[in-house]
């Protein structure tokens, strides 16, 4: 079953394109951000530590992960392929598990690779200004692998939403809206409760694992935040799973 879903995953053009976009945009944006901010970061009045920028591109790469995660399941329902899939493998749980495994595996590798590439590119410019982030700097390696983890779970998060709404545009809009837009707007909410809402937004909580040091000092710790994100994803997957087993294809 894993093999079948692996063939499916790689035999449509959206996969290589999304992954290429993920790597190029992710690593490129990190490099670009570091290049643009290196001089300021090296200055005396810098407000942020250089490490805060070293995985910055993941902010954009996550869009590709969302698209890929969503398409993995909504393409099935959008094209009618689901009928062929569920006819071939009536145990739908196995289909979903195989899909999720292939998706998460590929996104983890692509995310980690992108973060690593971004580190090499961005660090080059930081080094020019004498503020290179050492390979063994605190939390750096955790953030690089964390980028892979974050994108993998983000892919699953969108996958779960796609499983529930069964519609590409709806799933992508919902997740992009929640992760990118609402996630950032939530910081504008007033008071202590607003701060908590912002912290617990899936993208904000999950993203903590992907940066050595975040911009938001109030954010959850990396593993706590990632744990919250995993729990949210698991809950959505549970709902999607439950629905998939009961709905007509």
């Amino acid at each position: 079953m894993l093999e079948a879903e692996r063939i499916k995953f790689w035999s449509v053009r959206s996969t290589p394109w999304s992954l290429l976009a993920l790597v190029v945009v992710g690593a490129g944006f990190t490099t670009l951000t570091c290049w643009a901010n290196a001089e300021w970061l090296a200055g005396a009045d810098a407000g942020d530590p250089p490490t805060a920028y070293i995985t910055f591109g993941i902010q954009l790469a996550q869009i590709a992960a969302i698209v890929l995660g969503g398409l993995t399941i909504t393409a099935e329902h959008g094209t009618g392929l689901a009928r062929a899939t569920y006819t071939a493998v009536p145990r739908r749980g196995r289909v979903l598990a195989a899909k999720a495994a292939v998706l998460a595996g590929v996104l983890f590798v692509a995310g980690t690779f992108t973060a690593l590439l971004g580190y090499l590119g961005g660090n080059h410019f930081l080094a020019l200004h004498g503020i290179a982030v050492a390979w063994d700097a605190p939390d750096l390696q955790r953030a690089l692998f964390g980028s892979g983890l974050y994108l993998a779970v983000l892919g699953l998060f969108t996958f779960a939403v796609g499983l529930i709404v069964r519609h590409t545009a709806a799933a992508l809009t919902l997740v992009l809206g929640v992760i990118v837009l609402v996630g950032n707007l939530a910081y504008a909410l007033p008071g202590g409760w607003g701060e908590w809402v912002a912290k617990l937004m899936p993208g904000n909580a999950g993203g903590t694992i992907a940066t050595p040091v975040g911009f938001d000092p109030a954010a959850l710790g990396p593993w706590t935040g990632f744990g919250v994100f995993c729990a949210q994803t698991a809950a959505l997957l549970g709902v999607g799973w439950w629905l998939a087993l009961r709905r007509d294809a």
Partner: peptide, 18 residues
């Protein structure tokens, strides 16, 4: 009941694998 972007051979390959 198939994905328009996939080739006929790949469609049958995944079915066979499953």
């Amino acid at each position: 009941a198939l994905h328009p972007g996939r080739s006929a051979r790949d469609h049958l390959r995944w079915l066979a694998a499953s």
